[in-house]
Amino acid sequence: MAYSDKVIDHYERPRNVGTLDKDAVNVGTGMVGAPACGDVMRLQIQVNGEGVIEDAKFKTYGCGSAIASSSLLTEWVKGKTLDEARLIKNSQIADELALPPVKVHCSVLAEDAIKAAIADYQSKQGTG
């Protein structure tokens, strides 16, 4: 299967790989996994007082498309409010990366991850 140039770019130079303190009150952690391929993805966001995502980190064990989807997503959510970030759809990720149909589930995983991270942050704030 041929990967698009954008997938290869993110795969070879992933943005924002790393960890934020999962116990910090201003950090939300989303853990998701796709049983079919065994991929696991952790996406973390750090949110400031105005509800804006000021930092995002990810770690993904999976195929190139899964890594690229989460890498791209961390770039997109930085500087966005939680409400804006929540609106990101997997189809936007799939389009941007030109994912073939068999790899669309990787972008679904990334969307699930940001939603889970936001939910985790909000439950810590008592607003979830």
């Binding site: 049983p35 079919a36 699930d112 889970a116």
Partner: peptide, 9 residues
């Protein structure tokens, strides 16, 4: 097989 995401953080 495609859709399900395991919900067990």
């Amino acid at each position: 097989p495609q859709k399900s995401t395991l919900n067990d953080p």
